[in-house]
Amino acid sequence: MKIVVCIKQVPDTEAEIKWDIPKGTLKRDAMEATITNPFDEFAIEEALLTRENYDGEIVAISMGPEKANDVLRNALALTVNEVHRLTDDAFAGSDTYATAYVLASAIKKIGDVDVVFCGKQSTDGNTGVVGAILASILGFSQLTYVSKIRSIDAGAKKIVVERAIEGGVEVVEAKLPAVVSVIKGINEPRLPNLMGIRKASKIAIPEWNAGDLGVDTGKVGSAGASTKVVEIAVPPPRGAGEILKGEIEDIVNTLTDKLIDLKVIK
């Protein structure tokens, strides 16, 4: 089985965000503390479990500047078989569609892929749609919010998964190839061991640019993106709250009055 896992380098949640204001994009290279997108850790782990259960090889891809090598090295340390960084000046400023288009081009180049794993969403852009657009572009089955893989049959080209959606769990059978985006809790991501880290540190990360991928540069980056950021703002702080003080009986009396006054409680 051929497995691809798409991963992203994101700023550490606590880190200071550095914007390129005129372009409305992040200065990804200027930010020190970066991590593998937390949801993608579940995607990598699911790829590893799939390889353990069904055999096969894993190719991890990441689109991004040189810093993205860190997350690919981490994937190598976790024993994925192969990695590629998708990078080109023309990719900067890509929106959701353009990003999915570049990833799709890489997946086509890898060829004969059975399953693509990705995380439900990134913690920086938060869009949560790249996996679904990727499936749409590739014509693969679109399996989102996946909380469990029940079975994969590469011979019969079939996969059965559980999707955690509003109100319950939907069990879906789909054709392979498929894009599977996973949620937290599908597994417990393992940590790389020391030997893996040491080995990964010495490997040069191969790069694929627009030319290698056959990407039409008019369709990607700031030039090709259909969505454009026109304003970045810090949301207004929430109004200064009121700390209720006094005897607990009085506090509870005041609070229940205030909440009932909102006319929300029926």
Binding site: T96, Y97, G128, A132, L134, A135, R163, I165, T227
Partner: peptide, 23 residues
């Protein structure tokens, strides 16, 4: 921006060939 709305909006944008704004 529910599971169904997000899935459908994303796949539809993918078919039409443009990006979308989410949430």
């Amino acid at each position: 921006a529910t599971s169904q709305g997000t899935d459908l909006a994303a796949a539809t944008a993918g078919q039409l060939g443009f990006g979308l704004c989410t949430d």
